[in-house]
């Protein structure tokens, strides 16, 4: 789920001026590729309503485009016959749908209680520092890394736990931080 064109959202045509709100535009109308559309059609066979396929369909959209743009919302709403506002409401309820492009490696630090007891906040801050003083959620200049904080990853025995894109990483400390980052190409 990493990737997507890593444009700073301000450069994307059609985005609302500063101070405005809502889903960011990717600048062009979107449509599922035939393969993605086939997967969505298969999803629809697994539920009694179209609406129920919304979460998995949004996953498909994120897989396809890297993040959920205004146009992705429009397309998903059309495919599932839902109101776009409803779809955007769902997107914003869940934390895992990216609402702006992210780096190639989306590094997610758990800072919930068990990881907190293992100084996860410290490692999280250190990681951002080493990648060039990134703010929380900022993407590095080379477009490779976005570092964010997440809640419990259900790996409390491996604290501090980290997830990079879809993969789990165990016990990331200040000591092994460099080798961890070095392993992300």
């Amino acid at each position: 789920m990493s990737g997507g064109p890593n444009l700073p959202s301000a450069q994307i045509a059609g985005n609302p001026p500063v101070g405005e709100h809502g889903a960011l535009s990717c600048g062009k109308a979107l449509k599922f590729s035939p393969e993605a559309r086939k997967r969505v059609d298969h999803l629809l066979t697994r539920y009694p309503t179209k609406q129920a396929a919304l979460l998995p369909t949004l996953w498909e959209a994120q897989r396809e485009w890297g993040w959920i743009s205004r146009e992705a919302v429009d397309h998903v709403a059309e495919v599932l016959e839902l109101a776009p506002a409803f779809v955007w409401g769902v997107v914003t309820f869940y934390t895992m749908y990216n609402r702006a492009p992210v780096g190639k490696h989306l590094i997610q630090f758990c800072t919930s209680i068990s990881c907190h007891l293992a100084d996860a906040e410290g490692v999280y801050a250190e990681c951002r520092k080493r990648l060039g003083d990134l703010k929380p959620g900022e993407t590095s200049k080379d477009g490779k890394f976005t570092v964010i904080e997440v809640e419990c990853l259900a790996q409390c025995d491996k604290a501090p736990a980290v997830m990079v894109n879809d993969d789990d990483y165990a016990v990331i400390t200040k000591d092994n931080l460099d080798s961890f980052l070095g392993g992300l190409k």
């Binding site: 985005n15 889903a23 934390t95 702006a100 929380p136 959620g137 997440v150």
Partner: peptide, 13 residues
């Protein structure tokens, strides 16, 4: 936060 800042605000976390 504004949506543009969402990711930056650590909304994922």
């Amino acid at each position: 936060p504004k949506v543009a800042d969402r990711v930056a605000e650590g909304i994922h976390g």
